[in-house]
C-alpha cells in the first residue's frame, strides 16, 4: 500500500529525514518510535503533504503511485489520513459541518454526489457512538476549548467517518488518560481491516498495548535504524533509546 524509498526531506534548509525506507502492506499495523527530534512527526507530515516540508530525494508511493506532487487534499482523497498530534482549533466551524464538508469534498473529488443528509446523520450517529462522543459535542466549534482527550477522540471520530486506507496516528496517546486511551484504541481497532493499514507514531510503548503493531521501527536522526516485531517496543520501554543510539554510533 505505502512504499517509501530513500526519502530525504528538509524544512527551511534543515535536513530532517535522511533516507527513510518503509513498506506498509494492507492489513498491517506499523509502529514508529524514537526519541524526541528523531523526525517522527516530520515523516507523518511529509506523507500527508505539508507544504513547508521539501522532499529532497526519494519517493513516496501509494499503491504504486508517486504522490510527491499531490496537494494535501488530493492525498486525503486517495485515502491518507493524519491524526494530528496537536489538532488545530477552528472557531466558528462546528465538528459536524467540518466533517460533512470533508466527506462531501472527498466525494466530489471522486465524481460522486453529496452524501444524502439522512445517510450522513446515520453515519455520524454510528461513529460518534463508537468513540463515545456526546451529541452536544458535535455542534461545538472544532477543537475549540476541547480537552486533550476530546481533541484526540475527535481525530479518531473523523478518521472513522472518512474511512481512510492509510491512517497515520501522530502521538495520539499524548495527553490521554487511561479511559480515553482505551476508547481511542478501541475505535482504531474496530476500524482496522485487511484492506487498510495504520502507522502509529509514538514515543511510548503504552498505546501499543492496545493497538498491537505487526512491526516496530525505531527512528533516529532521520533514519530507521532498527526494525523488529512488537517485542521491540517493550525492550525500548525498558531500556530507553540510548542503547539504540550507541548501537548506531558503534
Amino acid at each position: 500500500m505505502l512504499k517509501i524509498n530513500n526519502l530525504h526531506a528538509s524544512v527551511e534548509d534543515k535536513s530532517i529525514l535522511r533516507g527513510i525506507n518503509l513498506e506498509v502492506k494492507p492489513g498491517e499495523v506499523h509502529a514508529i518510535m524514537g526519541p524526541n527530534g528523531s523526525g517522527k512527526s516530520t515523516l507523518a507530515s511529509v506523507i500527508a503533504g505539508k507544504e513547508e516540508y521539501e522532499v529532497d530525494k526519494g519517493e513516496i508511493l501509494l499503491e504504486g503511485e508517486n504522490i510527491d506532487e499531490l496537494a494535501a487534499e488530493e492525498r486525503a482523497h486517495k485515502g491518507i489520513f493524519l491524526s494530528f498530534q496537536y489538532p488545530v482549533e477552528i472557531p466558528g466551524v462546528s465538528v459536524t459541518n467540518f466533517i460533512k464538508t470533508a466527506i462531501n469534498e472527498t466525494r466530489k473529488a471522486k465524481g460522486l454526489e453529496d452524501m444524502p443528509a439522512n445517510e450522513m446523520l446515520k453515519l455520524i450517529r454510528e461513529k460518534s457512538e463508537l468513540l463515545e462522543i456526546d451529541r452536544k459535542f458535535l455542534s461545538r466549534s472544532l477543537n475549540e476549548g476541547f480537552s486533550g482527550g476530546e481533541k484526540k477522540r475527535n481525530e479518531i471520530f473523523q478518521m472513522a467517518m472518512l474511512e481512510p486506507k492509510l491512517a497515520i496516528l501522530d502521538e495520539t496517546d499524548s495527553g490521554l488518560d487511561i479511559d480515553a486511551l482505551r476508547i481511542v484504541a478501541n475505535g482504531v481497532n474496530k476500524l482496522k481491516s485487511k484492506d487498510n493499514a495504520v502507522i502509529v507514531i509514538t514515543h511510548y510503548q503504552r498505546l501499543l498495548d492496545y493497538i498491537v503493531p505487526d512491526f516496530v521501527h525505531v527512528l533516529h536522526n532521520g533514519r530507521i535504524v532498527k526494525s523488529g516485531p512488537k517485542e521491540l517496543a517493550h525492550e525500548l520501554e525498558e531500556k530507553g533509546y540510548d542503547w539504540i543510539k550507541e548501537e548506531v554510533n558503534a
Binding site: A48, G49, K50, A71, A72, E73, R75, A76, H77, F81, L82, F84, P87, V88, I90, P91, G92, V93, F98, I99, T101, A102, I103, E105, T106, A109, S141, Q158, L162
Partner: peptide, 19 residues
C-alpha cells in the same frame, strides 16, 4: 489541518473566512 482532511485549498480558505 483542513486540507489534510480532504477539503481543497479554496474551500478551506472560504470556510475559515466564513467562520
Amino acid at each position: 489541518y483542513m486540507r489534510s482532511r480532504g477539503i481543497p485549498e479554496k474551500e478551506a480558505k472560504a470556510l475559515l473566512m466564513y467562520a
